[in-house]
Amino acid sequence: MISRRVTSTAIATIAASAVLLGLTGCGTPPWLDKGSASSSSPSPTASPTIRTITNDLATGSTKRALTAGSIGLTVNYWSDLAMDKWTAGANKPLSFSLTGALTPDDGQQVYLSKVSAVVAVSDGNKSLPAPAPIADQASITPGYLIKTPYSYSQTFVLPALDPKATSVTLDLTYELLLQSTPTSAQYAKQTATDTIVIAIAR
C-alpha cells in the first residue's frame, strides 16, 4: 500500500513538472509583451494635402438671386469661352444678364445706373497682380431699365493674368435706382453685390 501511494505521488509530481515546463517553454504571450507590441505598431504617415479650386462656372454658367431693399435681382453668368480655354494668357469673357422685380410692386420702375467689378487674382496661396476694376456707367438718365420684362446684358473681358494664377475672383456691385412713385422723377438708390470665382486652366 505504501509503495502504491509513493508511486502515485511521484506520477503526479512528474505531470505537474511537465505542465510547468510546457508553460515555461511557451514564453510570454504576445498581448502581454509590451516591447514587441510597440515595435510592431506601424508608424503614422502624413496624408497629402489636396487643395480644391472653386469654380462657379464649372458647368458653364451659374444663376444668382440678389436683393437690394425691395428690389430682387436675378442674374445669370456664363462665358462663351470654354473653361479649359480660361488660361492665364487668354482674354477671358464673362457675360451676364440681369432683370429686376419689386416686392411689393406699386408700379415704380427700376433702373441700373452702374455695374462694376473689382478683380482679385490668386495662385492658391497668395494674391497676384490684378487688372484694373471694370465698370459700365449708364449713358442715359436715370439708367438702364431692368424691371421685368426688361433686362440688361453685358460682357466684361478679363485680360492676361500672371502665369502662376490658379483662380480669379470678381466682386460685382450693381447700383440701382428705384422710382419713388410711378410718376415721380425722384429715385432711391439701392445696391446689390455678388462674388464670382472662376478657376484658371493650366
Rank of each mutant, 00 (worst) to 15 (best):
T99Y: 07
L73C: 09
C26H: 05
K126T: 12
G89P: 00
A101M: 11
A188D: 15
R202S: 10
A201C: 09
A138W: 04
S79Q: 11
F96R: 00
S43E: 07
T9W: 10
L94K: 02
A58T: 12
A37V: 08
L128E: 04
I11G: 03
R5Q: 12
L176H: 00
S8H: 13
A12W: 15
P159S: 12
V75Q: 02
L161Y: 00
K34V: 10
V6Y: 15
S153L: 07
D123S: 03
T62L: 02
A188H: 09
K34E: 15
P149V: 09
D136C: 02
D33V: 06
A130R: 08
N125S: 14
Y144C: 00
A135Q: 15
S97T: 14
A132L: 15
V118Y: 03
A201T: 08
A160C: 06
S47A: 10
P44I: 03
S39Q: 13
D162C: 07
G27T: 08
A160Q: 06
S61A: 15
G100T: 01
D105S: 10
S139G: 11
W31V: 09
D123I: 02
S17N: 08
P131G: 03
S180K: 14
L23H: 07
K34W: 15
A65L: 15
L178V: 11
D136H: 04
A135D: 07
Q190N: 14
K63I: 05
P30H: 06
A130D: 07
L66G: 07
T45Q: 08
D162W: 01
S151G: 13
Q190P: 00
I140C: 01
P129H: 09
D105K: 06
P159R: 04
A58S: 13
A46S: 07
T183C: 05
I134N: 04
S38F: 14
S8W: 15
W86S: 02
S127P: 03
Y150L: 08
I50D: 07
T141Y: 01
I140A: 04
R202P: 15
K85Q: 14
D80V: 13
S8M: 12
A90R: 06
A16R: 03
C26E: 09
G124S: 12
T87G: 10
A135R: 10
L176I: 02
T13N: 07
S70H: 03
T148H: 15
S43Q: 10
Q190F: 07
N55E: 05
K114M: 03
S40C: 06
A37L: 14
K126H: 09
P93R: 03
L98G: 02
R5Y: 12
G72V: 04
A130W: 02
T169I: 05
A12E: 11
A201F: 04
L21K: 04
Q108S: 12
T103M: 10
S180D: 13
V121A: 01
P104F: 14
A165K: 01
K85M: 15
M83P: 01
S180M: 08
K147Y: 11
L20F: 06
R64K: 13
L32F: 13
S47Y: 00
Y144M: 01
P30D: 10
S41R: 10
T62A: 05
I134H: 02
P129Q: 13
L32Y: 13
W86Q: 04
A101D: 13
G35T: 14
A88V: 05
K164F: 04
G22F: 03
N91P: 01
S151T: 12
